[in-house]
């Protein structure tokens, strides 16, 4: 874990971190990672990785259309709309 990693992670997570915060964050994250390392020392060879804390199965939905058009409601609080579209800064590759 170093400064560059912190900057990369914050970029990926879209979190704005000031330069003078980096050292503090680095120290805290290292503490957390040390704890993770400690957990990693437990032998889990015969343990199935857990994908969900609830020991339940996914309920399935019948394939029925049940949503009505609520565009107006959703767009009421949005300033950046036009002709039913959501308008965003130009994103093009």
């Amino acid at each position: 874990m170093n400064k560059e990693t912190i900057i990369k992670i914050s970029d990926l997570a879209k979190i704005d971190i000031k330069d003078d915060q980096i050292d503090d964050i680095l120290t805290s994250l290292e503490k957390i990672l040390n704890l993770v390392d400690e957990m990693n020392s437990v032998n889990t060879d015969n343990v199935t990785p857990m994908s969900h804390p609830l020991n339940l199965k996914q309920e399935l939905r019948k394939d029925i259309v049940g949503a009505s058009d609520e565009r107006e409601l959703f767009q009421k609080n949005n300033k950046h709309i036009d002709n039913g579209y959501y308008i965003v800064p130009k994103i093009i590759d």
């Binding site: 036009d82 579209y85 959501y86 308008i87 965003v88 800064p89 130009k90 994103i91 093009i92």
Partner: peptide
């Protein structure tokens, strides 16, 4: 994402 509707913005249809 539709890029050719507006000169400086993209339009989103979800």
């Amino acid at each position: 994402s539709i890029h050719d509707l507006y000169p400086n913005e993209s339009a989103i249809d979800l």
